[in-house]
Simulated scan of single mutants.
Amino acid sequence: MKDLDAKDRLLLAALRADARRSLVELARHAGLSRSAVHERIRRLEDAKVIAGYTVRLSGDIARHEVEALIAVSLQQGRNCDHVVPYLTGIPQVVTCWSVAGPTDLMLLVACATNGELDTVRRQIASTPGIATVQTNVSLRMHFDRRA
């Protein structure tokens, strides 16, 4: 969606700061009616500009998970189209990026325990089309700017 105007951008910024803001608060903030804000948000959702809403846990709760970055190299002649559909089916794979360099994919994986991480790592490594996996376990998050 390329036709975002200043009001759309203002609403998006307000929602990124606090996605739980009411339509009345958003309307007041943007200088629009409640119904106009509701229509704009619906349009932004339909256009996939707003892909969803989420809950961010405090550091104490979120840290009960074991997080790892897993670098995946594909077998010769294989590409992401062969592998990504399988990875989508593993709920612990939170994010999957295609990357440039010796690694083909970088996965962010979140598990409850190290044992679960080991099981997930083995699932990933046994996926047809994957040549190698390299696992880097996160010890501590210093900051996260993602909303």
Rank of each mutant, 00 (worst) to 15 (best):
D3L: 08
D3N: 10
L4N: 00
D5S: 08
L11G: 00
L12N: 04
R16T: 12
L23M: 06
L26V: 13
A27P: 02
R28T: 07
H29V: 08
G31K: 05
S33E: 14
S33Q: 13
R34A: 08
A36Q: 00
R40K: 12
R40N: 09
I41S: 04
R43G: 11
L44C: 07
L44W: 03
K48Q: 13
I50H: 00
I50P: 00
A51K: 08
G52H: 05
Y53I: 11
V55Y: 15
R56G: 10
L57S: 04
L57Y: 09
S58W: 05
G59R: 14
D60P: 01
A62T: 03
E65G: 09
V66A: 06
L69R: 11
L69A: 08
Q75K: 11
N79D: 01
D81N: 12
V83L: 14
G89Q: 11
G89T: 07
I90V: 13
P91A: 01
V93F: 03
C96K: 03
W97Q: 08
S98G: 04
A100D: 12
D104F: 01
L105T: 03
L105F: 10
M106T: 14
A110P: 00
A112V: 15
T113D: 05
N114W: 07
L117Y: 01
V120M: 04
R121I: 10
R122Y: 06
R122G: 06
G129Y: 01
G129W: 02
V137D: 11
L139M: 12
R140V: 08
M141Y: 15
D144H: 14
D144K: 15
R146F: 13
A147Y: 15
